[in-house]
Design a protein around this nucleic acid. Structure first.
Length: 304
DNA sequence: GACATTTGACCTAG
DNA sequence: CTAGGTCAAATGTC
């Protein structure tokens, strides 16, 4: 039996009571829920950075399977966030409509200029800005299963850190339009966190098992081990408290995968305690101010 | 030499 | 006019 409470759990900014109707209830502020899912994405990304390097040293194909599982989990989270955002935002016009309005405005003021190259650049920039994007906060911005090439870096207003711009390595070879930006957060915490924003979908075909290992950014062993384990129980409780049945169902599936992978660390995937300790010791290099690429190199060097 | 990164210039939206 | 996104030549690395 559904609990049709008249108050909404995620309503910190609203003074009006929430409707008892499930659909209309989505108009409430779900930002706390979204924040939790974003945090979960971050944790999954951390976990992936720990597990995949170990599996990629074993040429038995498990790395590819686990990478796909991680991808599915993150994709699931993105869909949940997207669904919540679209309902929360409510009546805002679709992206195409916004683009059309700006296109019309630009047409009026543009005049004659615009050779073919400029037109192409213009079209690219316009579409780049208004295509769907997903963002996540993670200590490991480079380990996302894809190969990226940096093409720019900019100082950003009101931020102490530069923003880096990456495009898919296969942009020219396979016309893959995926790009991402990475920016370090101005946080005082002991774990360095980055905001990663993904634009566009990968249309390239890459072989995960052949993909090079990605950079593991500086993070402390404590931040990885304690955060992951402590948050799991916490996370279960939060999912139980979610008032939207569909959302809870989606997230429960996700949590199931999460638990499965964690459990697999020590059993089915063949990762032993000794390995985990050595891996965490390696991550401690972050505190020694080693460059992230050096850390990556250590992990790759086959110390397992 | 091939490929990746850096960095200043350029372009556009707001 | 400014901030942010992209380009492409210069530079670095293997």
């Amino acid at each position: 039996m559904k609990n049709k409470s008249s108050s909404c759990r995620y309503l910190p900014h609203s003074s009006a009571p929430c409707s008892t109707d499930d659909t209309r209830c989505f108009r409430c502020d779900h930002r706390p829920a979204i924040d939790e899912i974003v945090r979960e994405q971050s944790l999954v990304t951390q976990l992936r950075a720990v597990v995949l390097p170990a599996l990629e040293t074993k040429a038995d194909g498990r790395a590819e399977i686990v990478a796909q599982l991680f991808g599915s989990i993150l994709d699931c989270s993105r869909k949940v966030i997207s669904a919540l955002n679209s309902r929360y935002v409510g009546e805002s016009p679709p992206d195409d409509e916004i683009v059309d309005k700006r296109r019309a405005k630009r047409k009026n003021s543009e005049g004659k200029k615009g050779d073919e190259v400029k037109a192409k650049q213009h079209e690219h920039k316009r579409s780049r800005r208004y295509t769907n994007s997903t963002s996540q906060v993670t200590p490991v911005p480079h380990y996302d299963g894809h190969q990226w090439r940096k093409y720019g870096q900019k100082n950003i207003n009101n931020s102490n850190h530069q923003r880096s711009y990456y495009r898919c390595t296969y942009k020219h070879e396979q016309n893959c339009k995926a790009t991402k930006t990475v920016q370090q957060l101005d946080s005082a915490g002991e774990t360095i966190m980055y905001t990663v924003v993904y634009y566009g979908q990968h249309t390239c075909k890459t072989n995960m098992s052949n993909a090079p290992l990605h950079v593991v950014e500086t993070s402390t062993p404590q931040s990885i081990s304690t955060t992951c384990s402590d948050d799991l129980g916490d996370y279960s409780q939060k999912i139980e408290n979610m008032h939207t049945p569909e959302l809870a169902e989606v997230c429960s599936d996700e949590l199931g995968s999460y638990h499965a992978i964690i459990g697999a660390e020590h059993s089915a995937l063949g990762l032993e305690d000794e390995y985990m300790h050595r891996l965490l010791d390696t991550f401690a290099c972050g505190a020694l101010d080693l460059d992230s690429w050096e850390i990556d190199a250590i992990v790759r060097s086959g110390f397992f």
